[in-house]
Simulated assay, not measured.
Amino acid sequence: LLGGGVDSISLNTDYGFDVLGRIGMKVNEATLAYALAGYSWQHFKLDAPAPLDVDWGSSGFSVGAGLETALSDK
């Protein structure tokens, strides 16, 4: 119990969308280095007693980089 008769409060991220592009180059025969960029949107829902029971969305630009390595030739 959280006090005041409140049984539970939870924050859920139930769905979201991403539009991303990725470009890369081979480092060697098994490894790819890449960069990505795009736009992301996420929906949030706060389950709580009224008036705190609300939902909203948040969005913004996404950027990142990474390495992808093949563990086998298949």
Rank of each mutant, 00 (worst) to 15 (best):
L2K: 11
G4P: 04
G4E: 05
G4H: 07
G4Y: 06
G5A: 09
G5R: 09
G5S: 10
G5N: 12
V6T: 14
V6I: 15
V6A: 11
S8G: 07
I9W: 05
S10T: 14
S10W: 01
S10H: 06
L11Y: 05
N12H: 12
N12E: 13
D14Y: 06
D14H: 09
D14T: 12
Y15W: 15
Y15T: 09
F17I: 13
D18T: 10
V19S: 10
L20A: 05
L20Q: 11
G21A: 15
G21N: 06
I23C: 06
M25H: 12
M25C: 05
K26I: 00
V27G: 04
N28C: 09
E29I: 00
E29A: 14
A30L: 06
T31W: 03
T31E: 05
A37M: 03
G38R: 01
Y39M: 01
W41E: 09
Q42A: 10
Q42Y: 01
H43I: 01
H43K: 11
F44T: 00
F44A: 01
K45I: 00
K45D: 06
D47C: 00
D47Q: 07
D47I: 02
A48F: 02
A50P: 14
A50W: 02
A50M: 02
L52H: 09
L52T: 01
V54S: 02
V54C: 00
W56Y: 13
W56H: 04
G57W: 05
G57Q: 10
G57T: 13
G57A: 10
G57Y: 05
S58A: 14
S58W: 07
S59G: 15
F61Q: 05
F61M: 12
F61H: 03
F61P: 08
F61V: 14
S62Y: 08
S62P: 01
V63W: 08
V63S: 08
G64K: 12
G64E: 13
L67T: 09
L67K: 06
E68P: 05
A70E: 14
A70M: 13
A70F: 04
L71C: 06
S72L: 05
S72C: 08
D73A: 13
